Computed example of a mutant assay.
Amino acid sequence: MGTFVNVEPGVNLYVEDINPGGSKTIVFIHGWPLSHKQFEYQFDVLPAMGYRCIGIDWRGFGNSDKPMSGYNYDRLADDIRIVVGTLQLHDFTLVGHSTGGSIAIRYVSRYNGYGVSKLVLVDAAAPIGFTPETANKFLHETLNDRPKMMREVTDSFFFQYISAPFSEWFFQLGLQAAGWSTAAVVVMLRDEKLDADLPLISVPTLIVHGIHDKVIPFQQAQELHHKIRNSQLVPFYYSGHGLFWEERDKFNQLLGHFINQ
Rank of each mutant, 00 (worst) to 15 (best):
Y71E: 13
D197E: 14
Y14M: 06
P67Y: 10
D123T: 03
Y107D: 04
M68I: 12
E141Q: 11
N6T: 15
H90D: 15
Y114C: 01
F251K: 00
D155F: 02
W58I: 01
Y71Q: 13
G70K: 05
K24E: 12
V27N: 07
T134L: 15
A196E: 12
L255D: 05
V27S: 02
Y51V: 02
P217V: 12
L194M: 10
V153R: 00
S117M: 09
L189F: 01
D17M: 10
Q88N: 12
I82E: 11
D74E: 12
F39E: 01
P127N: 14
E133P: 00
Q220S: 11
S167C: 14
A126Q: 05
R229L: 07
A184Y: 00
R52G: 01
C53F: 01
P9N: 10
L121A: 03
W169N: 10
F130P: 00
D74I: 11
T25E: 02
G256D: 07
L119D: 03
F236E: 00
E223D: 15
L254E: 03
P199W: 02
P217W: 10
I80S: 00
S23L: 11
R75Y: 02
P204T: 13
F28A: 12
L13A: 08
L198G: 03
A135I: 08
K148S: 12
K193E: 11
A104R: 00
Y107W: 07
I26A: 05
Q160W: 02
N136D: 14
L224A: 09
N12H: 07
D57S: 08
F43E: 04
D191H: 06
F157Q: 08
L76Y: 02
G113N: 07
Q261S: 13
G21D: 10
F92G: 03
W32R: 05
S239H: 08
F236S: 15
G60A: 14
Y71W: 08
F218G: 04
G96T: 15
G129E: 00
T25N: 08
H90G: 11
H225W: 08
Q160Y: 03
A135Y: 02
S239V: 01
S167N: 04
E246A: 10
G129N: 05
N252A: 11
H257Q: 12
P217F: 15
I207Q: 03
S167M: 06
R106I: 00
F258T: 07
R248M: 10
L175T: 14
G96N: 09
P165Q: 12
G85N: 13
H97C: 13
Y238Q: 14
H140D: 08
G22Q: 01
E246T: 04
V5S: 05
G21N: 14
P217T: 08
P20T: 15
P67W: 11
L46W: 03
V122A: 06
T205W: 02
L46Y: 04
P67M: 13
K37F: 05
Y111L: 04
